[in-house]
Design a protein around this nucleic acid. Sequence first.
DNA 1: ACATGTGAACTGCTTCACAGCG
DNA 2: CGCTGTGAAGCAGTTCACATGT
Lengths: 206, 206
Amino acid sequence: MKRIADSTVRRLSIYLSFLEEIEGEGVLTTSSDDLARLGGTTSAQVRKDLSFFGSFGKRGLGYSVPELAAAVREILGLGKQWRVCIIGVGKIGAALARYAGFADRGFNVTGLYDSDPAKIDHRSGGIAIQTTDDLDKDVRAGKYDIAVITVPAESAQPIVDRIVKAGMKAILSFAPTQLTVPEDVELRTVNMAMELEALTFALTNR
Amino acid sequence: MKRIADSTVRRLSIYLSFLEEIEGEGVLTTSSDDLARLGGTTSAQVRKDLSFFGSFGKRGLGYSVPELAAAVREILGLGKQWRVCIIGVGKIGAALARYAGFADRGFNVTGLYDSDPAKIDHRSGGIAIQTTDDLDKDVRAGKYDIAVITVPAESAQPIVDRIVKAGMKAILSFAPTQLTVPEDVELRTVNMAMELEALTFALTNR
DNA sequence: ACATGTGAACTGCTTCACAGCG
DNA sequence: CGCTGTGAAGCAGTTCACATGT
């Protein structure tokens, strides 16, 4: 398959949330213009994004909302359930564990890990917290599709190295540090300092 | 000033965290090659990024770590203290309020707001929680440089409209919804669903 | 000799504009 | 006729390669 730009994937997520919203309202058809207005893009961009994956509309008419929503869900890989573990049950990890919006999209948090012995066997959002000693074994057993890392900056790279070695292929990190993984591992990082700095840069340079 | 790409700003943040790390270790000089290795980019990219803002190195020698760190801090607007308010003191909002890494970079959380009367006057991370009724007045008084939005999806756009009307110019949103602001307002959105979907897309299409 | 700074070449994303089809 | 789907054109960001300064 042709390589798809990251920006295209991000926009597909935006289109999908709009489609699900109007699908809930019972709207039956929509157009690239509607999708563009919301997503802050252009109708040509919407059509180009979709064109990488097929032809989903009817010329002169637009798109069937349920059909397009189903197609985009499929494209994004949301047709199945994904098993997620959260490593590091501090404030952010605990907040994520309890976040319901997760499950709605097929992301099931089925494991929590922490290195602090005081937290082990406690529950967070209905799931028992295990020691990180169990992590390698569980990852090696293929228990998870995605790992979410919410440990302190200095622990992040060692943990990532461990789970990558155990076979983990997709990681979402909230640790405020630059991580490196082999190129067959998919890594995304959410770094709040970076987002705030993008704001202060914009505020300063005007 | 020439328009700077978002990707350049993100990389500057990465360079800075590396520079601060080695500055702490007492390293005195570095090179575009060193900076590239960590940031997962190329030395030409590093030099190009910096060249938009000036000439910071010495040919044949490299860069002075303290000088370059100071320069990048200045470029990113980190030379001053920024006053930040957090709107929505749920799990994520509370976690952010307590996050120390904030203050280290000059971001001072000086206001917390929530619409839930049960939370008002309670404290989180040492700061009293105020009603969102006070928000417009406080924003209009210029109390904050940046607003962080951690309210539920359905409340996000109304809150953003209110603070924008009151004069807020920089917003970081964690609400899982697409927001719209006038173009003189700087908005960044961290959307976890979008990050996870980028992972499942990658896992599915290989 | 070595590493920076930068115009020029290149790559790839976005926008345009129109042919195609309901 | 209206809106999609898509080559072609345009533009922005990245990479190359070398002149420049120490």
